[in-house]
């Protein structure tokens, strides 16, 4: 697989939110507005790329039987170190904007999922690219979700009023709205795939119905 492919696969073909169904918890919780989604996405991308590199470095020293607990320890340590460094040296404004998302990433399953599925089998550079691509895909999916939810709930985008006088539609700000918008997105994705499969004369199984993309029990 070429280097570019490692990066681009996370954006659309293997989008962590819309295809791999990873990181649903932050997706539902933090997509209340486009700005929150962007902040969470940037923080996750950084942590994902960093932790993938670290896991890729240590992968040869960790026996495969205890690799999952080891990865959890490594990721938690990495995220906590990033949090402490940001609290100490990042400008107050940046820490205020991005710092609040870091604790949410500690046990994020995208990070663990990519460590297990990719970084534990590939070199540091490819793992970093995979992390960056997955992070970008996560950010874009979250921003699309956040944008739709923010617009429907308050008529704003990135906290700027787009439609003055939009009635407060609280449903979309609350978790129920997150489920509705996410389900709509997934339905559109599946509809596109089914149409594509029909045109090609094959049948389509949604990838999340099997677990071929995950290697944890293999």
């Amino acid at each position: 697989m070429s280097v570019l492919k490692e990066f681009t696969k996370g954006i659309w073909k293997e989008n962590p939110v819309l295809v791999l169904m990873l990181g649903m918890c932050p997706t539902l919780a933090v997509s209340t507005s486009a700005k929150n989604a962007l902040g969470m996405g940037i923080a996750t991308t950084f942590v994902l790329a960093g932790s993938n590199v670290v896991i890729s470095w240590v992968r040869k020293f960790i026996p495969s039987n205890v690799r999952i607990p080891c990865y959890i320890v490594v990721i938690a340590v990495f995220v906590t170190i990033v949090e402490m460094l940001m609290g100490a040296y990042a400008p107050a404004e940046l820490n205020k904007t991005l710092g609040i998302y870091i604790p949410l990433i500690v046990v994020n399953c995208i990070v663990l999922g990519r460590a297990e599925a990719f970084a534990s089998k590939n070199g540091a550079f490819a793992s970093m690219l995979d992390g960056l691509g997955m992070g970008l895909g996560f950010t874009l999916a979250l921003m699309a979700l956040g944008g739709v939810r923010e617009f429907l709930s308050a008529g704003t985008l990135f906290e700027y009023v787009v439609v003055p006088g939009w009635p407060d539609f609280l449903l979309f700000k609350l978790p129920a709205g997150a489920f509705i918008v996410l389900a709509t997105f997934l339905a559109i994705m599946n509809y596109r795939r089914i149409r594509k499969a029909e045109r090609e004369g094959t049948s389509y199984t949604p990838p999340e119905m099997d677990c071929s993309h995950c290697h944890i029990c293999k």
């Binding site: 240590v58 026996p63 039987n65 080891c70 320890v73 340590v77």
Partner: peptide, 15 residues
Amino acid sequence: LCFSLGAVCLIGTAG
């Protein structure tokens, strides 16, 4: 296995 997991935890804690 115990040694590996312990070592990872110790190094992480030290860091």
